[in-house]
Design a protein around this nucleic acid. Structure first.
Lengths: 195, 195
DNA sequence: CGATTCTTTGAAAACAGTCAATCTGTGTGG
DNA sequence: CCACACAGATTGACTGTTTTCAAAGAATCG
């Protein structure tokens, strides 16, 4: 399973066999079956997590018991709760698997150690953090500035792979809409595309 | 004007006079009069910016010409566009002054240099970035999960100082509501608080 | 095959957005 | 110093959309 991560890394940076070996040696393979939790709210999140296979979702539950999905993580992307990890505080989020999945975990200390001693690796992660910040920023603008239909179209355009893998009501949750509204937008949208 | 920043720094970390001197020597004082731009969309943002006095707003303009405010920056906080800064790409955002303001600018190179050579300073900034990520995350959850009234109450609770300084229609823009809706929520909210 | 889970559709109610008129306070220029 | 313009806030009436509730039709899974 580490192969997936190796491929991911080599596509972005070059690493000696030794370095790669060091990374592998601190990685922890974790299998999740569908619906299994990786993180539950109230727990402290202590890892960096790379998804090798499958699909995870991160979400919060509000006062009324309604889920709000903040992120989907397919294979070749990352999951976790950075806030909880950095501040070592109880997480507000839940993360669970939407499909049977395989995740690579790295303890924070191990991971930080890798970063400190491998500049290219550090740059990669630094970059990753910047990108994820930009994504969240982008998402926030969509949430306050787009109409429901724009949100839907934007999502399909940006994440067609996710769109084809997760149920519609979860996308509705991600976009902050009711799922009924989303099916309606969708059927209307189809008409507009083929007049 | 550097004194404001000095105070800010000393409240969080300890620095030798020398180090402080080094920081001051690369700082650029910039005065902005009300309505003046610090950044206009299309330009590349190249600084770290600390607000010493006044109040700035960051916002985007959508296709229909409507502003969407992403951030208010009062004195003792930061402003800028991290995405544009890191990727050296044209910014999507505008930043302007809501009051006559004074900002401290640091060129990216100078700033990164300070970070590289002063670990405590680096930690502070690192921390700042984590916090701002958490804030954006939080905001996104509010945007997709809260009712308009909850958004309003949450804003007052979190940012009473901003609430008392910027016009209501800008808060509406920040929250993704029309300003009429916001005044209505507010008058209703007052009734509920004093039955 | 039976049971979830997911999606679609309908109708009614609740809600926010829009348009428009009015009111207030502030500040500028004559 | 006043008058006028301007930015901000409030309110009403109306419109359009979204949510909610409900029922029922697909699809998937054990």
């Amino acid at each position: 399973m580490f192969d997936v991560f190796r491929k991911y890394l080599l596509a972005k940076i070059s690493l000696s066999q030794q370095d790669m070996q060091r990374i592998e040696s601190v990685s922890i393979v974790k299998k999740l079956s569908k619906r299994q939790y990786l993180l539950q709210q109230g727990d402290v999140w202590r890892y960096y997590a790379f998804v090798c296979q499958g699909c995870l979702r991160s979400y919060r539950v509000d006062d009324k018991g309604i889920d709000h999905i903040s992120k989907f993580s397919l294979e070749n992307s990352w999951a976790g709760d950075r806030e909880s990890l950095e501040k070592e505080t109880a997480s507000h989020s839940n993360i669970d698997a939407l499909e049977d999945s395989v995740v690579l975990l790295f303890k924070k200390d191990d991971f930080d150690n890798l970063r400190k001693t491998m500049p290219v690796f550090d740059d990669l992660i630094e970059n990753l953090i910047h990108r994820s910040y930009a994504v969240t920023q982008e998402r926030m603008h969509a949430a306050i500035g787009y109409t429901p239909e724009e949100k839907y179209r934007n999502f399909i355009k940006k994440y067609p792979d996710i769109f084809n893998r997760v149920p519609l009501h979860m996308i509705a949750s991600y976009l902050g809409l009711s799922f009924e509204t989303l099916t309606r937008i969708r059927s209307q949208s189809l008409k507009n595309d083929r007049p």
